[in-house]
Each structure stands twice: as structure tokens, then as C-alpha cells.
Lab assay of single mutants.
Amino acid sequence: TETYETTDETEARKIAEELKRRGLTFRIERHGTTIRIESD
């Protein structure tokens, strides 16, 4: 499991693209301005 936290929408998108490219599944949670991406 890898966890990323960012407040930057663009960075979050880049992380999501990278995880997809590596064939990982992940979920995105939003907590206020923080975007949390957690891979399975």
C-alpha cells in the first residue's frame, strides 16, 4: 500500500496516472483541501 497526500489537484492527477500506468488500483479520498490517494 502506498499513500500520497497533496493539496494540489494537478499533482493528484499525476499520481493517479502513474499508479494506473503501473497497473495498480487505488482510491481517492478528499478531506477538505487535502486529496489522499491510497493504492491497494
Rank of each mutant, 00 (worst) to 15 (best):
Thr3Lys: 09
Ile28Glu: 04
Thr25Val: 08
Glu11Lys: 07
Ala12Phe: 05
Glu17Phe: 11
Asp8Trp: 04
Tyr4Met: 02
Glu5Phe: 12
Arg36Tyr: 08
Ile15Leu: 05
Ile15Gly: 00
Phe26Ser: 03
Arg13Thr: 09
Ile37Gly: 01
Ser39Glu: 04
Lys14Gln: 12
Arg22Gly: 02
Glu11Val: 12
Lys20Thr: 14
Lys14Trp: 09
Glu18Asp: 12
Thr7Ala: 06
Ile28Asp: 02
Asp40Glu: 11
Asp8Met: 04
Glu18Asn: 11
Glu38Asn: 07
Glu29Ala: 08
Glu29Met: 14
Glu29Tyr: 15
Asp40Ala: 11
Ala16Pro: 00
Glu17Gly: 08
Thr33Glu: 11
Gly23Ala: 02
Arg30Leu: 11
Ala16Lys: 06
Leu19Val: 01
Arg21Pro: 00
Thr3Phe: 14
Lys14Glu: 09
Ser39Met: 13
Asp40Gln: 13
Glu38Phe: 15
Ala12Trp: 04
Arg36Ala: 02
Glu29Thr: 15
Thr34Glu: 03
Arg30Met: 11
Ser39Trp: 15
Ile35Glu: 01
Arg13Trp: 12
Glu38Arg: 13
His31Phe: 13
Thr6Arg: 00
Arg21Cys: 08
Ile15Asp: 01
Glu5Met: 08
Thr3Gln: 07
Arg30Lys: 09
His31Asn: 12
Thr10Lys: 10
Phe26Thr: 04
Glu2Asp: 07
Asp40Phe: 15
Phe26Met: 04
Thr10Gln: 13
Arg36His: 06
Glu5Val: 13
Leu19Met: 07
Ser39Asn: 04
Lys14Ser: 09
Tyr4His: 04
Glu17Asp: 10
Arg36Ile: 11
Glu2Leu: 14
Ile28Met: 07
Gly23Tyr: 02
Ile15Met: 05
Thr10Pro: 04
Glu18Pro: 01
Lys20Glu: 08
Thr7His: 08
Glu2Trp: 15
Thr3Glu: 05
Thr33Asp: 13
Ala12Cys: 14
Lys20His: 09
Thr33Trp: 07
Ile15Thr: 02
Glu38Cys: 14
Ala16Tyr: 07
Thr33Ala: 13
Lys14Phe: 09
Glu18Phe: 12
Phe26Ala: 05
Glu2Ile: 14
Arg21Lys: 09
Gly23His: 04
Glu29Arg: 11
Arg21Ala: 10
Glu18Lys: 07
Arg13Gln: 12
Asp8Asn: 08
Arg27Trp: 12
Glu5Gly: 01
Glu17Pro: 00
Lys14Ala: 12
Glu9Ile: 10
Thr7Arg: 07
Gly32Ala: 03
His31Gln: 09
Glu18Ile: 09
Ile35Asn: 01
Arg21Ile: 06
Ile15Ala: 00
Lys20Ala: 11
Glu17Asn: 10
Arg21Thr: 06
Glu18Cys: 15
Glu17Arg: 12
Arg30Gln: 08
Thr33Gln: 12
Asp40Trp: 15
Thr34Val: 13
Tyr4Lys: 01
Arg13Ile: 11
Lys14Cys: 15
Thr25Gly: 10
Arg13Lys: 10
Leu24Tyr: 08
Thr25Ala: 10
Thr7Trp: 06
Arg36Asp: 00
Thr33Ile: 11
Arg22Phe: 03
Lys14Thr: 08
Tyr4Pro: 01
Glu29Lys: 11
Thr1Val: 12
Leu24His: 07
Ser39His: 08
Glu29Asp: 07
Arg22Asn: 03
Glu2Lys: 11
Thr1Lys: 14
Ile28Phe: 06
Thr6Ser: 03
Thr7Gln: 11
Glu5Asp: 05
Thr34Asp: 02
Glu18Trp: 15
Gly32Asp: 04
Tyr4Glu: 00
Thr3Val: 15
Leu19Phe: 10
Thr6Lys: 00
Arg13Glu: 10
Gly32Ile: 02
Thr25Asp: 10
Glu9Asn: 04
Glu11Tyr: 09
His31Thr: 10
Ile35Met: 02
Ser39Gln: 07
Arg30Glu: 04
Thr34Gln: 06
Ile28Ser: 03
Glu5Ala: 05
Thr6Ala: 05
Asp40Met: 14
Glu38Val: 15
Glu11Thr: 09
Ser39Val: 15
Thr3Ala: 08
Tyr4Gln: 01
Asp40Ser: 13
Thr33Asn: 13
Ala16Leu: 13
Leu24Asn: 03
Thr25Asn: 12
Tyr4Arg: 02
